[in-house]
């Protein structure tokens, strides 16, 4: 009887090993951890990026993408002309006012008070406020609906962008 129990154990182990492993946190793209050198296709081989033009990719699955802990709806990346570095990441956030306000506060805590876009690197329509943070390697742009603090609900999704500056 002991032996059959052993069989049972061995088999159930085999069976368990045959099942695909559950999703590891490493399969989730942490957008704030992406650097100019990140090779996203190599880093996340299980995720399907869609080629967009000659030097860009898109990724759309909100289950596997987070920006400072909150899920995001879509991302597109552009490769630098040297074809060896990332140039820009654009992220579409969900239409969730509280998330957007929290993100703004987190970025301010990390990089200080935001400024206006003096670089011309980011684009925003007339209905949006464009906030820009600068650090050594990147320019960060956050486009929010105007009067974010007073509106009850937002109708347009905020966007978040990182432009990698060449060292």
């Amino acid at each position: 009887m002991k032996r059959s129990l052993l069989y049972c154990l061995l088999l159930s182990t085999l069976w368990a090993c045959n099942r695909p492993a559950s999703k590891k946190p490493s399969d989730i793209i942490q957008i704030n951890a992406i650097t100019r050198e990140s090779d996203l296709l190599a880093d996340y081989p299980t995720l399907h990026f869609i080629r967009n033009g000659i030097s860009g990719y898109e990724y759309n699955d909100e289950r596997y993408m987070q920006l400072m802990g909150m899920p995001v709806a879509g991302m597109s990346i552009a490769i630098d002309e040297d074809k060896l570095h990332l140039k820009r990441i654009s992220v579409e956030l969900f239409k969730n006012k509280q998330d957007a306000v929290n993100l703004k506060e987190k970025l301010t805590a990390l990089y200080g008070k935001p400024g206006a876009d003096s670089t011309g690197e980011f684009y925003a329509s007339g209905e949006n406020d464009l906030l820009v943070w600068k650090n050594q390697q990147q320019l960060i742009g956050l486009s929010l609906p105007k009067n974010m603090n007073t509106v009850a609900e937002i109708t347009e999704a905020p966007t978040f962008q990182i432009f990698f500056t060449q060292p």
Binding site: D39, L40, L41, A42, P45, F49, Y57, I77, I79, K83, L84, H85, L86
Partner: peptide, 13 residues
């Protein structure tokens, strides 16, 4: 001549 693969974003010369 560029090298590229489905496993990488980059295509070095």
């Amino acid at each position: 001549v560029h090298k590229w693969s489905d496993q990488s974003c980059f295509s070095p010369v």
